[in-house]
């Protein structure tokens, strides 16, 4: 703890310079993290409301072998190639996860755990294999496990930010359709909506968000960024549109704080810090949010008791 107290003055100076945007790279990290936080929480909201909260966890773990195989094939860490590799293997994970319960006795929860751990093990095996190889440019591959925003280049961040913006745009355009399908699938079908098409689009959005989150949040904790913001937001308001806005703000805030932390401590893993910020915001919402928070529920219950007594 002593180190922290001695250095706290420096930390303040650094934080100040961070928020004066003196460092162009740090500014990009900030933009990328905030956009990632926002888009992940918005897409994650639908996943949680459809009772598919942990699918993002499995998808994120499934991306690992794709990134490693892409590196083995092309010997580069260019963001586009890594994105494509991650997408391919995430989709394969998604397929395995949905195929297993339909065609074997294995239950959905076990299928999720199997997919997650098998793909993750494949990825780690490939990573350890690569680290034994004598190739250039392999350092930093392990950063996608826990994320390290500070290590990212502005080029990568520009790609990630544009993908995040595109995801947000698609969700914005299809919001009505997604809402209908999330809450009343049969009704949507009876209206002639192609439910399976929209579900496929949604699965792609989910995979995209997970994949762009890999370098900032990391494989292991990506699930939290998808499911915590919406869970917190539900304590603020019953309306879906409002929930999405609140979730986006919470996700963006956590991105902001973790960008700041990764500026202060560039070697620290970003993902775990982001998750801790999210956990704090959830706790705050759980206790003090106006709609269903513990504190106001308590007050309302008391008021009700009082009026009942009269």
């Amino acid at each position: 703890m002593a180190d922290w107290q001695v250095m706290s003055a420096d930390y303040w100076a650094l934080t100040l310079s961070f928020w004066q945007f003196e460092d162009a790279n740090a500014l990009w990290v900030l933009v990328g993290s905030v956009l990632l936080g926002v888009s992940a929480s918005v897409v994650g909201s639908f996943a949680v409301l459809k009772r598919q909260a942990l699918i993002g966890d499995a998808l994120a773990h499934s991306a690992l072998p794709g990134v490693m195989v892409a590196f083995m094939l092309f010997h580069t860490q260019s963001p586009i190639i890594m994105l494509i590799g991650a997408m391919v293997s995430s989709l394969m994970g998604f397929m395995l996860m949905s195929w297993l319960p339909k065609n074997t006795k294995i239950k959905p929860d076990a299928a999720l755990a199997i997919t997650l751990s098998l793909f993750f093990a494949l990825g780690l095996m490939a990573l350890s294999y690569i680290q034994g190889l004598n190739v250039a440019g392999k350092s930093g591959l392990d950063k996608i496990l826990f994320g390290q925003a500070a290590a990212m280049l502005p080029e990568d961040l520009i790609v990630l930010s544009s993908v995040a913006l595109a995801v947000l745009l698609v969700v914005g355009l299809l919001f009505q359709k997604f809402r209908l399908i999330t809450f009343n699938e049969n009704y949507a079908r009876s209206l002639g909506l192609s439910v399976s098409l929209y579900q496929a689009v949604f699965a792609c959005l989910l995979v995209l968000v997970v994949v762009i989150g890999l370098q900032i949040v990391g494989v292991v904790l990506m699930a939290a960024v998808l499911l915590v913001p919406v869970s917190a937001a539900r304590f603020w308001h019953p309306n879906l549109a409002v929930i999405l806005w609140v979730a986006a703000i919470i996700g963006g805030l956590s991105g902001m704080v973790s960008a700041n932390i990764s500026y202060l401590a560039p070697s620290a893993p970003t993902g775990p810090w982001m998750v801790l910020v999210l956990a704090g915001l959830f706790l705050l919402s759980f206790l003090f949010a106006p709609y269903q928070g513990w504190f106001f529920n308590r007050i309302r219950a008391n008021d009700k008791d009082l009026t009942d007594d009269e």
């Binding site: 904790l221 699930a223 939290a224 775990p272 810090w273 801790l276």
Partner: peptide
């Protein structure tokens, strides 16, 4: 999902 990610994150931090 919320609990284990928070605990794990705290452990790593």
């Amino acid at each position: 999902g919320m609990i284990f990610t928070s605990f794990f994150a705290l452990g790593v931090v």
